[in-house]
Amino acid sequence: MKTLALALCLTLSLFSLTLSAKTLTEAQYIEVFQGEDIQQQKDALASLVMAGMSEPKVYNKIEENLQKSLPLAVDRHSIDYSAWLLKGLAYSGDEKYIATFNAVIAGDYHSKLQKYARKSLKILDQYKVWAPILSNKSLYDDKFSQASNVLANALRSDVLELKLNAAKRVINQNIDSEQINEVLNEELKDTRLLKHEKQSIQAYAYMAKALAITGDEKYKPTIEQLAQDSSEKKLRKYASKYLKKYY
């Protein structure tokens, strides 16, 4: 459980660390990973947290770079690079890379790399669920960017942690998109996952804040409904607070 908690904390921290990370196309990702700029590669790896990137060619290239980096990972900088590649590979959610992580854990590598490989296994397990949701193009709207569509998928999902992180991302990036606002509005009208549990209440509270921040009168009735009728007292208090602050 402690290892899982550490892995989840790592993933959560990456959501905040990559607020400005730009989502790239498949060709752009491959171009970056074929290059020699390590910092550019790290930035690209960080952006995969919520990129909705499912193209195998991208992750195959990451694994190729990882295999090349491992024998050279003997100091702080080289170990850090390999660690980023491990994390990036985990965002694929592809079980075929379990063998890669296990080989690092069992191999003659630095203990820090073995630790990162264990964490990456936990992240991979999480992204087996998240990756198909983020990359599902069935609800994509061509009028909006890839990043917007991925966030919309996350907010529509039935995974509370994913909804929560997407809402935080909307707030922290000051995203005011018609697509995102409409999805938030619909999700808040039907709080189907709301329970008397901390994560559930937090998810809907952050979603309500993300919508209220727009100050758009169109969405005020939705926040008012939460403030008046939500089954959770804490959520009613949050919604009331947002009404006073943003309207």
Rank of each mutant, 00 (worst) to 15 (best):
residue 98 I to L: 13
residue 90 A to Q: 13
residue 40 Q to K: 14
residue 188 L to C: 03
residue 154 A to C: 04
residue 227 A to S: 15
residue 40 Q to W: 06
residue 190 D to T: 10
residue 231 S to Y: 04
residue 149 N to T: 02
residue 85 L to S: 12
residue 158 D to A: 05
residue 38 I to T: 04
residue 72 L to R: 14
residue 165 N to T: 02
residue 154 A to H: 06
residue 243 L to I: 12
residue 102 N to T: 08
residue 118 R to V: 10
residue 113 L to P: 13
residue 185 N to P: 01
residue 152 A to G: 06
residue 9 C to K: 15
residue 219 Y to S: 06
residue 182 E to H: 14
residue 224 E to F: 03
residue 25 T to A: 11
residue 15 F to I: 01
residue 220 K to N: 00
residue 143 K to P: 04
residue 231 S to I: 03
residue 146 Q to N: 11
residue 205 A to L: 00
residue 105 I to A: 07
residue 94 D to A: 14
residue 36 E to C: 11
residue 149 N to E: 03
residue 18 T to L: 00
residue 65 N to E: 14
residue 29 Y to H: 12
residue 106 A to T: 08
residue 227 A to F: 04
residue 104 V to G: 15
residue 102 N to Q: 15
residue 237 K to L: 11
residue 221 P to T: 01
residue 129 V to E: 13
residue 133 I to V: 14
residue 60 N to W: 10
residue 130 W to Q: 08
residue 1 M to T: 09
residue 92 S to I: 01
residue 193 L to M: 13
residue 20 S to N: 09
residue 243 L to K: 09
residue 3 T to V: 14
residue 134 L to S: 08
residue 29 Y to W: 02
residue 49 V to G: 05
residue 228 Q to F: 04
residue 140 Y to S: 03
residue 203 A to W: 00
residue 113 L to Q: 08
residue 213 I to Y: 04
residue 159 V to M: 10
residue 47 S to K: 06
residue 87 K to V: 11
residue 246 Y to N: 05
residue 174 N to I: 00
residue 242 Y to T: 04
residue 165 N to I: 00
residue 51 A to S: 15
residue 225 Q to Y: 00
residue 82 S to L: 06
residue 24 L to Q: 10
residue 81 Y to Q: 05
residue 96 K to Y: 01
residue 211 L to S: 03
residue 136 N to L: 03
residue 147 A to F: 13
residue 76 R to F: 07
residue 134 L to D: 07
residue 171 I to N: 03
residue 197 E to Q: 13
residue 104 V to I: 14
residue 101 F to Y: 15
residue 206 Y to W: 09
residue 192 R to P: 00
residue 184 L to M: 06
residue 168 K to Q: 07
residue 172 N to P: 07
residue 47 S to I: 05
residue 145 S to H: 04
residue 78 S to Q: 11
residue 242 Y to Q: 01
residue 142 D to E: 07
residue 142 D to S: 08
residue 179 Q to I: 02
residue 41 Q to L: 03
residue 61 K to T: 13
residue 238 Y to S: 15
residue 63 E to I: 05
residue 53 M to K: 11
residue 208 A to Q: 02
residue 230 S to Y: 03
residue 40 Q to R: 12
residue 137 K to N: 09
residue 171 I to W: 10
residue 35 G to R: 05
residue 86 L to N: 10
residue 44 A to C: 04
residue 53 M to A: 12
residue 121 L to G: 00
residue 111 S to F: 09
residue 48 L to T: 03
residue 11 T to C: 15
residue 26 E to W: 01
residue 150 V to G: 05
residue 198 K to G: 02
residue 12 L to E: 12
residue 33 F to C: 05
residue 192 R to D: 10
residue 93 G to V: 03
residue 237 K to R: 13
residue 93 G to N: 12
residue 23 T to N: 14
residue 224 E to T: 08
residue 202 Q to L: 15
residue 247 Y to P: 00
residue 132 P to H: 02
residue 214 T to V: 02
residue 221 P to W: 01
residue 174 N to R: 13
residue 162 L to G: 10
residue 121 L to F: 00
residue 135 S to E: 09
residue 11 T to E: 15
residue 225 Q to T: 07
residue 230 S to K: 05
residue 2 K to V: 12
residue 145 S to W: 03
residue 190 D to L: 04
residue 196 H to R: 08
residue 34 Q to R: 09
residue 182 E to I: 01
residue 35 G to K: 09
residue 240 S to V: 02
residue 127 Y to H: 06
residue 102 N to M: 06
residue 79 I to K: 15
residue 139 L to D: 13
residue 205 A to R: 09
residue 31 E to G: 02
